[in-house]
């Protein structure tokens, strides 16, 4: 009998996990062959939120810094992609620009504000989100300002275009998940968790906490900016209020809590469950859906405050101990 905590048991579980992950990715990559455009769009939205949530996971789940306004990088990514494409860049180049620009902003803004701790950092990121809206309006010019920015349209018919966007968004989710898994086994990942569990102690151990935090935030921003960039091309028209919508960040936060902070697959699970739930709930009601959705969120927070994974694990343990006793 192998106990769950023994090394070989852990290895076997990890193998099983990655086998499931790979199988899931393959199934999703092949799904466009079978699904219609509507369900493709629903799934693309799920991947988008999973990517944003994975970005949030890096700074909140791994580093312990509550960036409530992290969706600001979604907007920066969207605008970087939009502006680059308006200036004539093809979509892949614009997408690289979206990732690079978002990471750069996080790097620059991170130096001062990542010295803040606890609530102060959280509030600073919210302020950043609100400031970004005004920034785009004031800059005007190539950003379109308050009038919004139309992106160049693709000549592709809806079938191939939406399938291409689906696959790009899927790649974003898979790569960001692999990235989080990779970070977790690197010294960098240990440094992040050391900061999360005790920043002063981490500093004493010789970790350059500010540089590590800034790097984590830049990675988080890059992942979020990727999702924003693809979204901009997908939706074809961006406005400050929709690109920097604080609701995107709130939703990602709920997905992170639901899935489990600091876990590899939690953000993906959270995005799938919450987005499908909201799509289904919304289908049944014309006006009361947001109330129903809100009640569901409260129930989830009460039942699984540490995420579905933890809740599921404790449920299994309880079941096992009851049956062991019997």
């Amino acid at each position: 009998m192998i106990s769950p905590s023994s090394p070989s048991g852990a290895r076997r579980r990890a193998l099983l996990f990655w086998a499931f992950f790979a199988a899931g990715a393959v199934v999703l990559a092949l799904a466009p062959l079978a699904l219609n455009n509507y369900w493709l769009r629903v799934l693309t939205t799920v991947f988008m939120y999973a990517t944003v949530t994975q970005g949030l996971n890096v700074i909140v789940g791994l580093t312990g810094y509550h960036a409530f306004g992290n969706a600001v990088f979604f907007g920066f990514g969207a605008y970087a992609c939009g502006v680059a494409m308006t200036l004539g860049a093809p979509f892949p180049v614009a997408l690289v620009a979206a990732v690079a620009f978002s990471a750069l902003v996080a790097g620059i803004v991170g130096w001062p504000i990542l010295r803040l701790r606890g609530h102060y950092f959280a509030i600073a990121t919210v302020a950043l989100n609100l400031a970004a809206i005004q920034l785009v309006i004031q800059v005007g010019g190539v950003t379109g300002g308050a009038e919004g920015l139309p992106l160049p349209l693709s000549d592709l018919p809806p079938g191939p275009l939406y399938r291409a966007i689906y696959l790009v968004m899927l790649a974003g989710m898979v790569v960001s998940t692999l990235l989080v898994a990779f970070i977790l086994i690197r010294p960098f990942g240990y440094a992040l968790r050391a900061i999360r569990d005790g920043e002063r102690a981490a500093g004493v151990m010789g970790i350059d906490t500010t540089a590590t935090k800034v790097a984590a935030w830049a990675i988080s921003a890059g992942i979020t900016g990727f999702a924003g960039g693809v979204w901009a091309y997908w939706i074809t028209f961006i406005e400050p209020a929709s690109a920097f919508d604080p609701a995107i960040g709130v939703k990602a936060y709920m997905m992170l809590i639901l899935g489990g902070m600091g876990t590899v697959i939690g953000p993906v699970l959270g995005a799938f469950v919450l987005e499908f739930l909201s799509t289904l709930v919304w289908g049944g009601f014309l006006q009361a859906h947001q109330i129903v959705f809100g009640v569901l969120i409260v129930v989830i927070c009460l039942v699984a405050p540490n995420g579905m994974l933890v809740a599921g694990r404790s449920l299994i343990q309880r079941w096992r101990s009851r049956h062991g006793a019997a």
Partner: peptide, 16 residues
């Protein structure tokens, strides 16, 4: 009729 929640993203999905 559907509700787009005043969001372009939702409107795109519902139109689809």
């Amino acid at each position: 009729y559907y509700d787009d929640e005043s969001k372009p993203q939702t409107s795109a999905r519902l139109t689809e």
